[in-house]
């Protein structure tokens, strides 16, 4: 029972950070999502020691564990676009597949080359 209250309270704290961030984004017409500002704000609060990790873990863990649940109702919105996908679905295949290959190979090769050269520099010193 005590844990349940703690969980609810911690989720409320996360909601409060989200609320403040979306309000700030709207008020100042910032061109970034409110949730991203909220993420940065929470990261800053954690880094600054203002909020302790233990104050949030109980509320954050179930939300993160079931994060993909939230995408289901949104993805159901696809039912309104059925025609579009049956008519043009085949055109989507190449852009999606090629860009995924680009992401994997580009990131992998760049990081592997850069970490190698960093280590060599380190060794020379």
């Amino acid at each position: 029972m005590q844990n349940l209250l703690k969980t609810v309270g911690q989720i409320f704290l996360l909601w409060l950070i989200y609320f403040i961030s979306t309000w700030t984004v709207e008020f100042f017409h910032l061109p970034i999502p409110g949730s991203v500002l909220g993420m940065l704000l929470l990261f800053a609060l954690l880094s600054g020691g203002i909020i302790k990790e233990q104050w949030l873990a109980l509320g954050a863990n179930p939300l993160l564990k079931h994060l993909s649940f939230f995408f289901i109702p949104i993805a159901v919105g696809l039912m309104e676009w059925g025609e579009l996908f049956t008519q043009k679905g085949h055109l989507l295949f190449l852009p999606l597949v090629i860009s995924a290959l680009v992401a994997l190979i580009a990131t992998g090769i760049v990081v592997q080359l850069l970490t190698k050269s960093c280590k060599k520099e380190g060794g020379a010193n």
């Binding site: 989720i11 996360l14 909601w15 950070i17 989200y18 961030s21 979306t22 409110g34 949730s35 991203v36 909220g38 993420m39 940065l40 704000l41 929470l42 990261f43 954690l46 880094s47 990790e53 949030l56 873990a57 509320g59 954050a60 939300l63 993160l64 994060l67 939230f70 109702p73 949104i74």
Partner: peptide, 16 residues
């Protein structure tokens, strides 16, 4: 989806 926003904010925790 009411809790999607707070859940997204919570992504800061694993990053931290």
């Amino acid at each position: 989806t009411f809790l999607l926003g707070p859940a997204t904010v919570a992504l800061a925790l694993p990053l931290y």
